[in-house]
Simulated assay, not measured.
Amino acid sequence: MKHTLMVCMLLVFVFQSHTYAKEQKTIVQTNEVYTFDDLTEDLFHLQKTYRDSLEVKLIGHSTFHKPIYAVKVGNGEQSIFINASHHGREWMTSMLVMKMIEDYARFHKNHTSYEGYSTSILDNVSIWFVPMVNPDGVEIQQTGLFQKAHKEKLQQLLIMNGGAIDFSRWKANGTGIDLNRQYGAGWEELEDSAPYPFYQLYKGNQPFIAPEVHALVKFTEEIQPLIAVSYHTSGRVLYWYFQTEKPHIKRDKTIAKQISTITGYKLDKPVHTAIGGGYTDWFIQTYKRPAMTIEISYEVNETNPPLSVFQEEWERNRKVGLHLAKEALQLK
């Protein structure tokens, strides 16, 4: 009888532990539109839950004065860097990166392996994330800024949106600058830029003037990452090259091929991608280190990918950060 009782108690304990573990995975919700407010609330809970494995840092403010946060997972002095949502309609990348942050922090805290990767990697190489580079653009795309507090901005936004009241195609920041055309590498050569502030493709009258870009550049200079990734949508394609110097081409393409194998995304041929103005273009040119732009989701036309695709994209990308941290160990 005592033996039976002990077995029952053990089963209850195991069940409760399993239930607790499942609960720990649900801070970041992925079944609804992911907003800046969701991200802010999730960061508060993640920091509280995983304070020994996770650090949140304010690195700047957007055009509309929203905070831009960086998050570090791990305790390594060296780092890699992953950012998301340079474009308003690409907020699913923020959801994906936040889910990555949560999973990595949880497994690191528990000293357990993740998808075959030892999370002790993060004691040597941390992963820094900026999960939402463009919080204003995300809010505009999701709401059109029809809230009362933003009525004074609405008329200008409507002009930049071509008069349309549907903002689902919005890519730019709050002043109509396309942030991923703001970086100095190849900026002057960009020929298909919109001639004035617009919902997409306007590169600004000079590089690095958008506050969001200024914050990201300053932060990159501060942490000096060994590898950088910028998540975008859509097309399930991976860009890895920008005027890459000959000695580095083999190294960078090898790493890109590994990520292509993990995600199932195709590598784009360099001749079709070297247009300039993007974050990874600037990073490659400035630091002579590997960087890649990863486009998640099947192709969608001028809008956000549907929520129904998230789970597949998560399964494709969940190992990317840890794999790159492992690769970075070889670059030190």
Rank of each mutant, 00 (worst) to 15 (best):
K2T: 10
H3C: 02
M6S: 10
V7S: 09
V7M: 14
C8K: 10
M9T: 11
L10Y: 08
V12Q: 07
F13K: 04
K22N: 08
E23K: 12
E32M: 05
E32W: 07
T35M: 07
F36H: 12
L39K: 02
F44K: 15
H45N: 13
H45I: 03
K48V: 04
T49A: 11
S53D: 10
E55P: 00
F64S: 04
H65Y: 14
I68G: 08
N75E: 09
G76D: 07
E77N: 13
S79N: 13
F81I: 00
I82D: 02
A84Q: 02
S85G: 04
H87Q: 07
R89E: 06
E90W: 07
E90M: 06
L96Q: 11
L96F: 08
D103K: 10
D103N: 12
D103R: 11
A105R: 01
F107K: 12
S113D: 13
G116F: 03
T119H: 06
T119P: 10
S120I: 05
V125G: 03
F129V: 01
M132Q: 12
M132S: 04
N134F: 09
N134C: 06
D136V: 02
G137K: 06
V138K: 02
I140N: 04
L145P: 04
L145W: 15
K148D: 15
H150L: 11
E152M: 05
G162K: 11
G163K: 06
A164R: 06
D166P: 10
D178F: 06
N180V: 03
G186E: 00
D192F: 03
Q200K: 11
Y202A: 05
P207Y: 08
A210I: 05
A210R: 06
P211V: 03
E212Q: 07
E212R: 01
V213P: 04
L216C: 03
T220V: 05
T220I: 09
Q224A: 06
V229E: 05
V229H: 03
S230Q: 03
H232F: 02
S234I: 02
G235W: 12
R236L: 05
V237S: 05
W240K: 03
E245Q: 15
K246H: 13
K253R: 15
T254K: 15
I255P: 05
S260C: 13
G264P: 12
D268H: 07
K269R: 10
P270Q: 09
V271Y: 14
H272F: 14
T273L: 02
G276F: 04
G277W: 01
F283R: 01
I284E: 01
T286G: 05
T286H: 11
R289T: 08
P290H: 09
T293D: 14
I294R: 01
E295N: 08
E299Y: 15
P305S: 08
L307K: 11
L307G: 14
S308F: 09
S308A: 15
F310S: 10
E312G: 13
E313V: 00
R318N: 05
R318K: 15
K319D: 08
L322A: 06
A325F: 04
K326E: 14
K326Q: 13
L329K: 09
L329M: 14
Q330R: 13
Q330S: 14
